[in-house]
């Protein structure tokens, strides 16, 4: 499906990359096969500037107010938030499990750091996800090359800085090939 290219409007602040917001929600009781995952994931929209981002984000429900098994995904335009996408297939993600009550603030800090190019890892960042679950929430940031240790270390250190997490927070790196197994 061809969509109109998004460009920054007059007087707006362009971003380094265009991004697309996605939303997914698991139907209770169904197995999470690849097909049902792709069917359950919906595009919210794409943006090219800071102001366009806020126009989407300000109207979106905050992750901490979501119920059930839901996810927001924010990926560079053209990258699907799936392991199978060419940009993700050799990649991995940093995962941070959050106790209830922290997701909204952490998600906002994470995506602002991504949009503002705070990670300083060239083209490596693919996108970010917040996953709302029953007992805890999970935020993750995906990069292209799981084997690039300098990059994954830099992403981890930037996450620590921008998320301002409690000192005992555990961060875990998972390659997407591990996740498939």
């Amino acid at each position: 499906t061809k969509r109109k290219a998004v460009v920054p409007g007059a007087g707006e602040h362009p971003l380094q990359y265009n991004y697309t917001f996605w939303y997914s929600r698991r139907t209770p009781g169904r197995p999470a096969s690849t097909q049902s995952y792709e069917q359950n994931i919906k595009q919210i929209g794409s943006f090219a500037s800071v102001e366009q981002f806020w126009r989407f984000y300000s109207h979106m429900i905050r992750p901490g107010d979501l119920t059930g098994h839901s996810d927001f995904h924010l990926f560079k335009e053209g990258i699907k938030p799936m392991w199978e996408d060419d940009a993700n297939k050799s990649g991995g993600k940093w995962i941070i499990r959050l106790r209830k009550g922290l997701a909204s603030r952490c998600w906002e800090n994470l995506i602002l750091a991504m949009l503002g190019e705070q990670f300083m890892v060239g083209e490596e960042i693919c996108g970010a996800v917040v996953s709302v679950r029953f007992q805890e929430d999970i935020i993750s940031i995906w990069n292209k090359t799981a084997s690039d240790q300098a990059t994954t270390a830099r992403i981890r250190d930037t996450l620590r800085r921008v998320l301002n997490l409690p000192p005992n927070t555990i961060m875990e790196y998972k390659t997407h090939t591990d996740s498939i197994k």
Partner: peptide, 21 residues
């Protein structure tokens, strides 16, 4: 080429701009 870098404070300020609403 140059990268377009914004810090959190600047991005939050843009939220209040009339064209962001």
């Amino acid at each position: 080429g140059t990268r377009i870098i914004y810090d959190r404070k600047f991005l939050l300020e843009c939220r209040n701009s009339p064209i962001a609403r």
